[in-house]
């Protein structure tokens, strides 16, 4: 699929979701896998926009590219914000997830959902870009 380039703002989340949905349809992912991948990309994109751009006082774009081969669908999500590795963020632990909402903290849920929803997740820093790589296995009938 051709690359999607959108501004690094929350208004772009709709276009990002539509791009991922088109990719999951093209790859033949089932409804649950498609939802999980869309959610994962949405969550990481939201963090990039919020932490990598807005809170850092930066402006930039998000670059999405989907690659489909015989066995996997891979989504590449790149940005030029501050170095931000989702795998190095603190995730909520089991005890936190069992707390009642009155005692919950707000952070970490997005990355927790993102990393737990895909078959593989990788991060790499390439030049001045963060590259987030989401992999879903295709189940061929």
């Amino acid at each position: 699929m051709e690359t999607l380039i959108v501004p690094g703002t929350l208004d772009s989340l709709g276009a990002i979701g539509q791009y991922v949905t088109r990719a999951t349809s093209a790859a033949g992912l089932d409804k649950k896998a498609a939802y999980k991948l869309r959610l994962a990309v949405d969550e990481i994109a939201t963090n990039i926009i919020t932490h990598g751009y807005q809170e850092a006082g930066l402006e930039g774009k998000l670059y999405l590219y989907a690659a489909i081969d015989e066995s996997i669908l891979t989504i590449f999500l790149e940005d030029t914000g501050i170095i931000y590795n989702p795998k190095q963020q603190i995730l909520p632990q089991k005890e936190e997830l069992q707390k009642v909402l009155d005692e919950r903290s707000m952070g970490g849920l997005g990355i927790y959902l993102a990393l737990g929803g895909v078959d593989e997740f990788h991060y790499e820093r390439v030049g001045n870009r963060n590259r987030n790589i989401f992999v879903m296995h295709r189940i061929m009938v």
Partner: peptide
């Protein structure tokens, strides 16, 4: 569709309204 942004709103809701409010 519900992302963690919606979940944070639910936490915000519960903490703003207090334990006496059932959701």
């Amino acid at each position: 569709y519900l992302s963690s942004a919606g979940l944070r709103m639910l936490i915000f809701t519960k903490q703003k309204m207090g334990p006496g409010v059932a959701i």
